[in-house]
Amino acid sequence: MSILSVRDLKISFKLQGAWHPAVNGISFDVERNETVCIVGESGCGKSITALSIMGLLTPAARLEGAIEYNGQNLLEISEKDLEKIRGDKLSMIFQEPMTSLNPVLKIGQQIAEPLIFHKGLSLNDAWKEAKELLELVRIPDASARLNQYPHQLSGGMRQRVMIAIGLACKPDILIADEPTTALDVTIQAQVLALLDEIRKEQDLSIIMITHDLGVVANIADRVAVMYAGDLVEMASVQNLFETPTYPYTQAFLSSIPRADRADKLKPIRGQVPPIYDMPEGCRFSPRCDEATEKCNQKPVLAGKMHQTRCWMRGEV
């Protein structure tokens, strides 16, 4: 059984008196000890999908569908029960290392917190555990760092602290929302390698959100491509890079400068429509070169190992 199963998740916001789906019924599974990457243009709904799994989305959003973890639907359990799972079984690392740590609390306190709440450790034991966590994420001089405040650490260090917090209770699933975007390239590679290593050690599943295809190639087992709130293609990382099938993915891959295919560089024409002005059928149709009459109806996600939501593609 998959460790996490997202079923027909729909996230809507109220704009000018009407509800508009920003995520439009997506489904995917995450297996144990696997890294799933979610990629897609800015604003396609990656972060709100991640936040809704954590139950951290603003109450202004309306959620439909199911998010099943260990057989329970996270959308239906109480806030109290969710609090018990959050930080213990499911944890999340955010995009902004500079602002995601509390400026007035010591690093040690911030790492110790989940251990105290979930594992019932005393402050003393939690502090020792926190020191080991800092060593795990390769922070030198860990016991001194525990007594420091976030402003005394560099961005890369802070992101490692965030990872340490995320890993504190040895969660089943770690969601990382663009964890390396704010870091410079060498640090990025180190952090990714670290995550991958820990995943193998701890039997962890990772949901990695990114729009950096380099990151995807580096770390992913499977990739989910999102476009304007739809999950449009899902495949193993080899299949996706070698034989992208969805027209958007094809265009997306070729819009990225790559050393081996510099000649093919071509940007995708047009822009993502705003969520209150989405086409009825395939949401990519206004920008798709292959669109036909049929595309005015909503395509379904078809296929087994390599799934695609497009009328023009059969089973792959």
Partner: peptide, 25 residues
Amino acid sequence: EDYIRTAKSKGTPRHIIIFRHALRN
């Protein structure tokens, strides 16, 4: 602020978020 979201993501109980994380700031 982002760090309040971080605190929630750790499963920190609400009263601790209010008094320890938010109030001091």
